[in-house]
Simulated assay, not measured.
Amino acid sequence: MIVLEFKLKGKAEQYRIIDDMIRTAQFVRNKALRHWVDNQGVKLVDLYKQCAIMAKEFEGAGKLNSMARQAMAQRAIFAIQRFFANCQTKKPGKKGYPQFKKHSRSVEYKTSGWKLSTDKRCLTFTDGFAAGTFRLLGSRDLHFSAPTEIKRIRVVRRADGYYAQFCINIERKEEPVSTGKTIGIDVGLNHFYTDSDGETVPNPRYLRQSEKALKRLQKRVCRKKKGSKSRKKAINKLGRKHLKVSRQRKDFAIKTALCVVKYNDFVACEDLQVRNMVKNHKLAKSISDAAWSQFAEWLEYFGKVYSKTVIAVPPQYTSQECSNCGNIVKKTLSTRTHICGCGTILDRDHNAGRNILAKGLKARAGINLNTVGHTGIHAGGQNDLYSLVATKQR
């Protein structure tokens, strides 16, 4: 599956109709979840039936396309399944009990309720809301995709406008070019990553760069009267700035991961539990700004596309163990140089990168490392459909 994204160009009245569509989709999803809460053990088929009942009872739900209502029921059942899966695996902390949505920003259509123009540059919604026709703005081309290959359309509201994401049933494959190189990657905060050859990529710190502007915009929001138009404008400006930072971070993660995969046949990285690491409130902002999880996801994705091997190894002792002799050299976080009794003197992250590569090569050879998670797997694990958008968000 690939996802192509376009910006929707329409009139102000059409955008207000899309807002109504999103609110109705949120209502359907919450009602489906309420039905599950009141009737434990219901299945997806039962929620589909409940959607048909809602269409008769509520006028707004009746306007929404039937498959769009079913997509909202799927969202509810996925949240329920994820909760039970976390309980079965005994995930530490909160298990993610399904919550009612208050501020949804998207609505999904399957194969009906919409229509593409003959030149595939316009999108028309044909359900009861009658939002009309929108121009599709973007650099991608839908002419290479047959209508039957488009399995789903997702309409997303962002701070800078409305977007349509086309989920296309195409397996993306690129011609692999063998380089014969292997690499181990140690991510960090001083440098975004340091590899096993000692090469470093600087950490861009996009959030830190925009922090002053964000604080200034946040102050403007606080000074405005609640409910006023000026406050809404200030909130929109703040949202646009946050959106720009997130896009910069994502663009950097995509391009960096692509370069790593294209120029190496084998990539070993750390299987970091970022969710636990951000509990350290002194480093949480910097860790979130670095976007290590996003980088790892794109490494796996491009590994599958280019038929390269990407292995995630456990990070334990990669910084403490000597990459030359294997002895443990205790270090604090402030100690940035690895000095071992065997005479090895390396940068701390360079030493860790060499250890990560060694662990990855052992995992590829099939040696049992008593590890968990993604260790020893070939890239290509299934990721959330919309977290791996195949185009840069515009």
Results as ranks from 00 to 15, higher is better:
residue 289 D to F: 00
residue 385 L to A: 05
residue 112 S to G: 11
residue 9 K to V: 12
residue 70 Q to M: 06
residue 383 N to P: 09
residue 105 R to E: 12
residue 202 P to E: 08
residue 346 L to C: 04
residue 48 Y to T: 09
residue 63 K to G: 05
residue 376 G to W: 13
residue 250 K to I: 12
residue 106 S to F: 15
residue 99 Q to P: 03
residue 151 K to G: 08
residue 38 D to S: 07
residue 125 F to W: 03
residue 151 K to F: 15
residue 341 G to H: 12
residue 273 Q to L: 12
residue 296 A to R: 06
residue 346 L to Y: 10
residue 36 W to T: 03
residue 273 Q to I: 10
residue 282 K to S: 12
residue 286 S to E: 01
residue 95 K to P: 00
residue 370 N to S: 06
residue 16 R to E: 14
residue 280 N to C: 05
residue 203 N to F: 01
residue 172 R to A: 10
residue 185 I to D: 00
residue 296 A to H: 14
residue 86 N to L: 09
residue 80 I to E: 02
residue 72 M to V: 09
residue 360 G to S: 06
residue 31 K to T: 04
residue 365 A to N: 03
residue 173 K to I: 06
residue 71 A to R: 01
residue 28 V to R: 01
residue 388 L to G: 05
residue 100 F to I: 10
residue 246 S to L: 11
residue 369 L to Q: 15
residue 299 L to R: 00
residue 317 Y to L: 15
residue 357 L to V: 05
residue 282 K to T: 06
residue 6 F to N: 02
residue 130 A to F: 11
residue 369 L to H: 12
residue 389 V to D: 02
residue 217 L to C: 09
residue 364 R to V: 10
residue 275 R to T: 06
residue 32 A to V: 09
residue 328 I to Q: 14
residue 263 Y to F: 14
residue 350 H to C: 03
residue 284 A to C: 04
residue 57 E to V: 09
residue 265 D to E: 04
residue 359 K to L: 07
residue 227 G to Q: 12
residue 392 K to Q: 07
residue 113 G to F: 11
residue 118 T to I: 07
residue 349 D to T: 01
residue 89 T to M: 07
residue 373 G to P: 02
residue 110 K to P: 02
residue 168 I to R: 01
residue 221 V to D: 03
residue 221 V to K: 02
residue 148 T to C: 15
residue 354 R to P: 00
residue 370 N to G: 14
residue 328 I to R: 04
residue 321 E to K: 13
residue 84 F to D: 13
residue 339 I to E: 08
residue 312 A to D: 05
residue 8 L to K: 01
